[in-house]
């Protein structure tokens, strides 16, 4: 019990410290989720603590992820008019993004010669963890490995976001939101939400649509391209 409490207190303290730094020094490399994760990983490695030990406390925070996702209904509701008006562009972009994500991940890892197990694990990376894990399970991937790929898409998405915006000429808030939600799920959405509530709400919609679309088309596309 004391270990669990210590892990929880440590996570809260590190998060608050990184948030404090981030509010005074807003840079990509000071993003709280990235710095906190790195610090905790270093601490666990230094003290030879396995992930399971960390999760005795971490699971209590993890359990609040569900209600945190539920809370996203509010921004969705606030921007319902614009969503209704722009539903077709948002839906079209998200569907095409879902196909691009599945096919590119699958073909690239296949050409690089990785095992089927790894390929199946990388396919659902652009959707939120619980959905990605259940897709991975049904297509024959490894669930915890899928969770890692989901993190690469999420945190990696934050890192490459400024570069992608510049290269692809994404200037419109709706386009940016769809790009973020389709590629980097809830981690990307939380970053979008911080920049601009409307962009964040569009990202929320894209993330939810993408989760549903990917779980429907991933099994078929996997069969087609394997």
């Amino acid at each position: 019990m004391s270990t669990a409490l210590l892990m929880m207190v440590m996570t809260v303290a590190i998060y608050l410290a990184t948030l404090f730094v981030y509010r005074r020094h807003r840079r990509l490399y000071t993003t709280p989720v990235i710095v906190s994760t790195a610090l905790i990983v270093i601490i666990l490695l230094v003290f030879h603590l396995p992930y399971e030990t960390y999760m005795t406390g971490g699971k209590w925070i993890d359990r609040l992820l569900g209600p945190a996702v539920v809370a996203l209904a509010y921004p969705l509701y606030q921007f319902r008019d614009i969503l209704k008006k722009m539903f077709v562009p948002i839906m079209t972009g998200t569907v095409i993004g879902a196909v691009v994500g599945i096919v590119s991940g699958l073909l690239l890892s296949k050409w690089a010669g990785f095992s089927d197990l790894i390929i199946h694990s990388i396919v659902p990376k652009s959707v939120t963890t619980p959905v990605a894990m259940s897709i991975s399970e049904s297509t024959g991937g490894v669930m915890p490995l899928t969770a890692v790929f989901v993190m690469i898409a999420g945190i990696g998405g934050l890192l490459i976001h400024p570069f992608v915006l510049k290269v692809s000429g994404l200037t419109h808030r709706i386009g940016r939101g769809v790009g973020m939600g389709s590629a980097s799920h809830a981690i990307g959405t939380s970053a979008s939400m911080e920049r601009d509530t409307m962009e964040g709400s569009i990202s929320t919609v894209a993330m939810v649509l993408s989760a549903v679309i990917v779980s429907i088309i991933a099994p078929g596309l996997t069969l087609l391209f394997m």
Binding site: G97, V164, S168, L170, I174, G175, A183
Partner: peptide, 16 residues
């Protein structure tokens, strides 16, 4: 993973 993520972000965003 990063390349595929960049593709999704750029393509879905641009289409929209």
């Amino acid at each position: 993973g990063l390349f595929s993520t960049a593709m999704v972000m750029a393509v879905s965003g641009r289409v929209t």
